[in-house]
Design a binder for these strands. Structure first.
Length: 471
RNA sequence: GGCGACGUAGCCAAGUGGUAAGGCACGGGUCUGCAAAACCCUGAUCGUGGGUUCGAUUCCCACCGUCGCCUCCA
């Protein structure tokens, strides 16, 4: 049984969807004001792994991820550039999906944009008005935290302990609120600023409102799982709870999952600190890293609730792990069944059970991969000894497929390989094969060296030469 | 100041009340025309100090260190 750490109760909770065989999941998506960096993608990759496990266990998942396409930064940039909001965000949305695809992240079923749900948000505010948890000030609408006694339950942040501006991230004077803890549901917009003329007046939605409104519209009043980075626990998710539960009177989320940060040079990777890298930086940079390596690093290097360190060495190690796995898959594909049987079927069954158990235990993919690599060693030994028969090969192949159904790196490697070989590379490979056929080692080695400089590693096997991309 | 997380071999990182997975790197070996891959061998007593226990890296306390959240950052 799959169990996940629930932020609300702070314990492992079994996943039991409200509707049998159908999990409803909402994950906080990007604010499209800039290109998302790989720290952001740690969250999206984690959520993708979760989604894949949920699909294995429950069959059906409805996954919603919002695109926040209106916020203070977007408004500011749009005005600076003379863009509409849509013009300002369009390129970043395109870039986001390019990275999602490059990292093999399964696309959510819905990517609602905040700006497409203005009416839903206005209605939600009206419902909150009816519950008397709102108030007006300077044309904006605020949520009165004092009216929601459960406030703070998710984050453990006690109301009294909150110090306005303690993080140094906001100028508290910018807001005219009754209480520093209150937050804007609807923000009055100035002349010439982007906004919407609505029943709440001229303005734009506050940050948290969209998630409550779109959850309600696409998944219903109570959802099974809601995910995001730990930084969203407070205030974002706390505020979502306050909005949603005050409006519906029902439990909003049954299980809250939050992933830890990606760290670089002993600090959280973030736009604000300027210590961030995008997928493009890594893939197009000098090292020429591959998306499959980045995915492995983000998905399988550390358990999702542990801080993960980014460094060139950790990328190198991730690459090594991907190589080991892909070479093993290749070997299985290239191997003919032997007569003798070394119990590979039993080995595969045992490792599969171990792997699944690790994932069931709060998605511990790093531990699961430990079992997988133990299997790779044992299976390679059996293959060396010629002790894997037909059923054994099938079982091992199916196991690799089962593992990668969660890990998701093998298809990326296949794409990378297809894109790596130029016509010139192909010509050199066939020349080398010919040289080898006539035992012209000098020419053969020379071409191998030349290909290596072009990023193609060639190696010889009993079945002929094979190659793989370096980097 | 409030709340929380973490500290395991050169690096990354699992894990357990009974003497510690896996990946990368390093060294030796088998195999190979050479190399690669693969396989074999080799490395840590788990931040520090106490406590509980027959026994703790794993539970408790203190301390040291690192990191995060505390209003629009995944």
């Amino acid at each position: 049984m799959l169990r996940l750490h629930d932020t609300m109760t702070r314990r492992l909770m079994p996943v039991e969807p409200l509707e049998a065989g159908h999990v409803r999941m909402y994950t906080c998506g990007p604010t499209v004001w800039n290109r998302a960096h790989i720290g952001n993608f740690r969250a999206f990759v984690f959520e993708d792994v979760l989604r894949r496990v949920l699909e294995q266990r429950f069959g059906r998942v409805t996954h919603v991820m919002n695109l926040t396409d209106v916020d203070d930064r977007i408004v500011k940039n749009a005005m600076t550039h003379g863009h509409t909001l849509e013009e300002e965000t369009a390129p970043w949305i395109v870039a986001f999906f390019a990275d999602v695809d490059a990292l093999g992240i399964r696309r959510a079923h819905h990517y609602p944009r905040a700006t497409d749900y203005i009416e839903e948000m206005v209605s939600l505010v009206e419902r909150l008005d009816a519950r008397e948890v709102t108030y007006r000030s300077d044309g904006s609408v605020y949520y009165r935290i004092a009216a929601f006694p459960r406030y703070g339950q998710l984050s453990g942040v006690r109301a009294v302990a909150l110090v306005a501006g303690a993080s140094g991230r906001i100028d508290a004077d910018d807001y005219t609120k009754e209480d520093a803890r209150d937050f804007a549901l609807w923000k009055a917009a100035g002349q010439g600023e982007p906004g919407w003329e609505t029943r709440l007046g001229w303005g734009r939605p506050g940050w948290h409102l969209e998630c409550s409104a779109m959850n309600l519209a696409l998944l219903g009043e109570t959802i099974d799982i809601h995910c995001g980075g730990v930084d969203l626990v407070f205030p974002h998710h706390e505020n979502e709870i306050a909005q949603s539960e005050a409006a519906t009177g029902k439990k909003f989320v049954r299980l809250w999952c939050h992933n830890a940060f990606l760290q670089i040079d002993e600090a959280k990777m973030s736009k604000r600190l300027g210590n961030f890298l995008t997928l493009g930086d890594i893939v197009d940079g000098e090292e020429g890293r591959r998306p499959s390596t980045v995915r492995y690093l983000l998905a399988a290097t550390a358990q999702y609730r542990k801080t993960l360190n980014y460094s060139d060495e950790s990328l190198e190690a991730a690459k090594g792990a991907v190589d080991r796995l892909i070479l093993f898959r290749d070997r299985l594909d290239a191997t003919a069944p032997s007569r003798r049987d070394g119990d590979a079927v039993k080995l595969a069954a045992r490792i599969r059970a171990d792997f699944d158990a690790c994932l069931d235990d709060d998605l511990n993919l790093p531990e699961g991969m430990g079992h997988v690599f133990t299997m790779v060693r044992d299976a390679n030994r059996l293959l060396d000894e010629g002790r894997v028969d037909g059923p054994g090969l099938d079982a091992l192949r199916q196991l690799v497929e089962h593992v990668d159904d969660v890990l998701g790196v093998l298809p990326l490697v296949d794409v990378e390989r297809a894109a790596t070989l130029s016509p010139e590379d192909r010509r050199m490979l066939s020349e080398r094969a010919e040289a080898r056929a006539r035992k012209d080692w000098a020419t053969s080695d020379q071409i191998r060296t030349a290909l290596a400089r072009r990023g193609i590693l060639v190696e010889d096997t009993a079945g002929g030469q094979r190659w793989r991309p370096a980097g």
